[in-house]
Design a protein around this nucleic acid. Structure first.
Lengths: 185, 185, 185, 185
DNA sequence: CATGAATGAGTTTTCATTCAT
DNA sequence: GATGAATGAAAACTCATTCAT
């Protein structure tokens, strides 16, 4: 398990730094301190490794959001909690958050097995629309706009290299913006 | 000249379909109907080709926006005009618009020579902030949020494969959203 | 013992289907339902496995011929019996017979330990020549022509996919041919 | 062209000595005095190279037989001429002849494009059967037995390492044998 | 301007074999 | 005996780039 996890972490770091194609599997193995063949013993192909990292990060973010919300929470504050927590997580896990975007905009995204596993956010949006707390738009549209807004803020904050308190202020502003944009009436 | 343009167009199509690394220069040359060496006769390196396509598309979009606006326009309607025109252009030039995103999120973006050539949108936002028509935020933040919103709408419309009239309706809605989000007070 | 035999049988099948080099030991182990290391526990190298299969089949064919002949038989009918039995055995054990050829034409053949263990056929030919029932040619020549004739018939019958009665007829014809070719005067 | 032919000749020699799988393309390129990539510039895959060699040899043998026969020849002497010439060619081009067998018994044989290009021998056998000069068997059977007989003689002569005059004598004997076996009545 | 043969470093992947448990 | 994770040396193949014509 140790080596497997070591490969995962090293690959993540290198993929973020050099891109998928810019990172040779041999280099990953070397930096992870394992033999070339060991990487392929655990992940049959490079694509499989790329996907495994995505699932790992996705699960981790989801778990971190699950830890601070409850099904019984009211929708409006829950929305704020999730938005804020996501951005803070993103800023404390920049490599991981960047990886998610990099992956989702790449052809690799097509390899994700399509289960019906809805995320907390998926369910929240669906319920918010149904209860007329969010605008009556297709959930898919709301989700897409939300994600792009979150990524936009992340992009700005990281590129402008803001101080922590400024970061919190912007996140707060950003929340007001998206809420004003998506809330019902 | 013919061959040069042929290479450009073919490369654009293939880069969008297979990605930068997934597209071999030899394949581009072949599909463009020119010899391997001809491609390198016009563009010294693959990176140079990738950049040339970006500049070409960027200029084309800018020219198309320039054709429908004037420096003397009022800011508020001009903002709407540009937003709407950009999205329509994106939907009629999907490959080109997608290329812009692909390029800007890639390490290639660092190769763009940093001139002070501001776009129409850059100038509009700067002036909007100065005149307190747009929120008093850093121009960079406003621009980032704007761009991500535009791309989010583009993503939704293309993935949902909407009919033309639905497209126009969503673009109109999308405009109201971003305007509500960015306008002063 | 069970596992050892299981490995042998699985390897035979796969070597015939994919060739020696085309068959990975890991795949053999997997299909045989044993662990990777178990294969190497029983056979020190892949070459050793390849050889073991050859010896196994060779012994089986020899035993099957021994069961229907006696040292005291007359040479002429014994020749016919052996020829006919060999071909029938070959057609009922196609994989095994094909393996023998595949092995003997490969560099692996050099690994067979050279004992003086003569086969029934070897002894029969030697005696036939000595007693002037077979042509006075080097035994090696007669054996080679015999083997190629047998394989030729096998090739034709399997490729033409003949019905059982046709098979018997061809084998009979084939016997007349080789006998006419090799018998004395 | 020079390099292409150089690759072909080198690969032939190495495939005969080490087998298809035992010969690395990198080694072929090295021995042929060309770069690794050059080999793949001329032959897209190793399989394509293997096939190209087969076609080359096959054509060469066919041309050599065509040079000493005429369509108007009588069948019986033509048969002898071809048989004898084939064996002499085989003994003077041992690598090439061995390659043909090696190839035809391998899975590569399935890659040969199935045209209707009949060889001289194919046509001769078909006509011999029709005119009742050869036994009334399926042409395929006659051809298979013929080929195996030729290869058997080749095998014996090369393994016994006979002197030239002995070779000629055995070939002559071998002709009588196959003719006795295949001629009508 | 245009060509396409030639290059060789680099890539992913395979695989027989070992060894600690 | 049995296991399967670990190994690392190959292997086939790719590809941006050069250059003589």
């Amino acid at each position: 398990m140790d080596k497997k996890q070591q490969i995962l972490a090293t690959a993540l770091r290198m993929f973020v730094e050099y891109g998928f194609h810019g990172t040779a599997t041999a280099k990953v193995a070397q930096e992870a301190g394992v033999a070339n063949g060991t990487l392929f013993h655990h992940y049959k192909t490079k694509d499989e490794l790329v996907l495994a990292i995505y699932v790992w990060i996705k699960d981790e973010l989801e778990a971190s959001l699950a830890a601070i919300t409850h099904d019984s929470d009211f929708i409006t504050p829950k929305f704020k909690t999730i938005f804020t927590a996501t951005l803070h997580w993103a800023l404390q896990n920049r490599g991981k958050f960047y990886y998610l975007r990099q992956f989702e905009l790449s052809p690799h995204y097509a390899n994700v097995p399509t289960g019906d596993n809805q995320t907390i956010l998926d369910r929240l949006i669906a319920e918010g629309i149904r209860r007329k707390i969010l605008r009556t738009h297709p959930a898919e549209l709301i989700l897409t706009l939300y994600n792009n807004h979150v990524f936009g803020l992340y992009q700005y904050i990281t590129q402008a290299d803001l101080e922590p308190n400024k970061q919190t202020a912007i996140i707060s502003e950003g929340y007001e913006m998206i809420w004003g944009m998506l809330k019902y009436a």
